[in-house]
Amino acid sequence: MESFVHVCLAGISAGMFIWLVASGLTLIFGVLRVLNFAHGSFYMLGAYLCYTCLRFLGIDFWLGVIVGPLAVCVVGYVMERFLLRRVYDLELPYQLLLTFSMVLIFDELVKIIWGAGSIGSPSVPGLSGSLMIAGRNFPVYNLFIMIVGPLVAVGLWAFLERSWWGKIIRAAASDREMAAAIGVKVPSLYTAVFVIGAWLSAVGGALAVPYVGLLTTGMGEAIIINAFVVVVIGGLGSLKGAFLGALFIGLLSSFGTRYIPTLDMSLTFILMGVVLLWRPQGFFAGVDR
């Protein structure tokens, strides 16, 4: 029983990280129609920049979580404004090539700036302890992540559904030309959405540092695969789908590892295969666009 509770908790907290990355990925795809391979790089940069703030500016973790991702927003802005904008009208392979090359460039940059070795994470003031839950310690920090994830989901939903900006974004997503015709500055809007997506991923990365326990080049690639699976399962462009998908993938891998260890590596991909065969558009495609 104690194991069951902990397998659930581990699954939910793992799912929340995937959600933070997948939310930005699906948002960017939903509006810009670009599959951004480099999205995992924002996750990595968020982590490294947050760490740098802590280490060299001497500010505390929480300020780092704010400052680090803001710096990533600048990177996202430059990337969208000067690179991605040129390939919107080209075929998909060009977009993939460009964003994949950005992955390699960001990885090398991180190696040049921070070195190739693993960096141990700093501790989080106030949240570094553990709580006894069902007879076993569980880190307070992971409980915190389990609250942050849904909060981000609610915040994004409110922003897109209830705010004036959200309406414009949805309008541009459903009909770019029409939106442009009624005076929406679509290019600027695209930049803004891309920056928001990059910010979400970077926040995920910054928050992941104490959870995973270290920073490595290539940490972005590790999570982006799961994020892609989540986005495919949930439906490309669907935030609700990404949230439920991430939760589901987190729990599936946690339970898989514990109870069906021989299949744990393949479970998520089997699931993705089934979804693609049975409901290729994903579970929630188009619902919230």
Binding site: E2, S3, H6, V7, L9, A10, G11, S13, A14, R136, V212, M219, A222, I223, S253, S254, F255, G256, T257, R258, P261, D264, M265
Partner: peptide, 16 residues
Amino acid sequence: PFGTTDFRPHINTIMD
């Protein structure tokens, strides 16, 4: 598996 970032399910198995 190679690239594991979350060892909690494994730790649960062992502690059980």
